[in-house]
Write a protein that binds this DNA or RNA. Structure first.
Lengths: 333, 333
DNA sequence: GTGAAAGCGCTAACAC
DNA sequence: GTGTTAGCGCTTTCAC
């Protein structure tokens, strides 16, 4: 349309005020008379002025963007709805700000280098980290930058300053307690990776519930959160513990795999074996039978991570947040 | 660690050359002696220098980022693996560049405004658009910016200058031709939304195949790509066309829903009714029975969109690209 | 092949 | 409450 973007100077001239005043209006500071403010707003409208992000961030040392770094780029894992829901939550909060979202899939060495460069070049005002593994190099990279870091879930090593997590241990525990309350006594579990805090926490919840009830907590097989690994682990459990009458599975995807394996083994769910999953992904409503599961507020996780990061950026000091989970009863238990 | 980021000036001083020379090295231009180049690289290493993105983009009028705008923020849809796979593809190509990825979920008015602002403020060097609907306002917004726009899929209205698309019509046609070749004669379809080009194209392919075979193409129900809508549409089809012996479903998610509905109606798959889906998402391997489907190269779509955008940004003139699809035979047909 | 100078468009600090 | 002055850290001309 117009040949060139108008600059702040042109707005100032047209409004008949100084550059300083225009800048004040743009960043809605005080110390501007209503009259001047109106004149500036008018001029902005007339000219269709939009401030240059580049100039602004050079002058203000703020970048106008935060990065969400995900320690996975395996589409099969990345695709598991979880990330998409987190992103949707992040987006919701971001929409109310001037900040933008940069996405970095940082599973590879290359991705990590990129994150490093962004942070070193002050390319972002903050970082959110998701899906970390044990000793994830991402942690060092992120902490080496000079911007706040918010964790989704906790690294296994030590609790960071800022994080949002679901109550994984409590959720797992209540799932197993529910199984116990329905009279199950030989309760197995399929865990997530034990090099991720979330995997460990859910396993802990399982053991806690059984310990409290004085039941045996040694029917255990490990998976990696994928459907395939769930099927494999279930088969393994059936081999080793033919007597099991229930299984708590640390993710819905694995639970779906477990259902397949149970069906293949000729066990009916929930009559022979009760199954409880974790996450309440959309798929949980479409398995056969539908899946009883522990819902964690995934979108809320994204929202709260973002809120926390924004507060940290503004030099507020947010405190870690644990989001509650909820048992959703369907047909599998 | 260090108090402050080193600047280009400091690198120049340490290397004993001018700022101009350092800049030339950084942007690996010619006209730099091997000696000077080495000195500069050494200094960069010693100082741990990383150029400031902000300063660079202010001076060069290049932003160092491209945006991927998705016309959907419904997590249920956004989560449907498709987007995640595209993003993974985009990421792959992006890793080889200095560009970064900004993600904007732009289904809401608010999101659209944000995209508009980014583009107007020259906040990005290019845009990729995904999942457009009929008369999607995103198109106007994106085209109004002064940066190249690459479409994933085509808008319904008119073919844009730059786009990457899967061969939806051809894929649908080959799916239906396969059904015909296995002796099916009463072939229905569950379409996607007819206000999206992809929905229309797949429906066209269905009709084309049947027309060529001289078969009736009027067993049609419409869905919105969601699993629920697939189940609903299947029920509808069974009501209206009790004689159907096959159904081509325009997405795997809908096909999963259709399988549920068929099972609920007591029809066996594939004996009573053969089912073919579209996309080959991970879930297709885990339905009962497993799903015969048309695979489209989703990650490749992301990769090629990105490559095309990069070329367009560099003032090359790429031509539209149609990616081939492939029929994947499993148990449902 | 290299150096010097002039901005890019904004914010911030200080004076009034 | 408002105007003025310096930069922010690069790239880019244009001489040499």
């Amino acid at each position: 349309m117009t040949g060139r973007q108008p600059t702040l100077d042109e707005v100032a001239e047209r409004a008949g005020v100084s550059r300083g005043t225009v800048s004040r209006v743009l960043n809605n500071r005080q110390h501007v008379s209503a009259k001047a403010r109106r004149a500036v707003e008018q001029a902005i409208d007339d000219l269709g002025y939009v401030p240059s992000v580049a100039a602004r961030s050079l002058a203000s040392a703020r970048r106008g963007a935060v990065v969400l770094a995900i320690s996975s780029d395996d589409p099969a894992l990345f695709a598991n709805q979880f990330f998409a829901q987190v992103i949707a939550g992040v987006n919701t909060v971001m929409e109310d700000t001037d900040l933008h979202l940069m996405l970095i899939l940082a599973a590879t060495e290359r991705g990590r280098e990129r994150l490093e460069r962004v942070l070193q070049s002050r390319g972002a005002d903050g970082v959110m980290l998701l899906a970390l593994r044990e000793n994830d190099p991402l942690v060092k990279v992120a902490e080496a930058g000079k911007v706040p870091v918010v964790y989704g879930g906790q690294p296994l090593e030590r609790a960071p300053r800022f994080y949002v997590d679901a109550d994984n241990r409590g959720g797992a525990r209540s799932a197993v307690e529910y199984l116990i309350s329905t009279g199950r006594e030989h309760i197995a579990t399929i865990t997530g990776p034990q090099d991720q805090q979330v995997g460990v926490a859910r396993y802990l919840g399982y053991r806690e519930a059984l310990a409290l009830a004085g039941l045996d907590a040694r029917r255990v097989a490990h998976g990696d959160f994928s459907q395939e690994s769930g099927a494999r682990a279930m088969t393994e459990l059936l081999d080793r513990h033919g007597d099991l009458d229930a299984v708590f599975v640390a993710s819905d995807a694995m639970a779906a795999g477990a259902l397949e394996a149970l069906s293949a083994a000729g066990r009916t769910v929930p009559d022979d074996v009760a199954v409880v999953g974790f996450n309440d992904i959309v798929t949980a409503q479409h398995t056969t039978p539908t899946l009883t599961t522990v819902r964690q507020p995934i979108e809320a996780l994204g929202r709260e991570m973002t809120r926390m990061l924004l507060r940290a950026i503004n030099e507020d000091t947010p405190t870690p947040l644990i989001l509650p989970t909820e048992l959703v009863l369907r047909d599998s238990a």
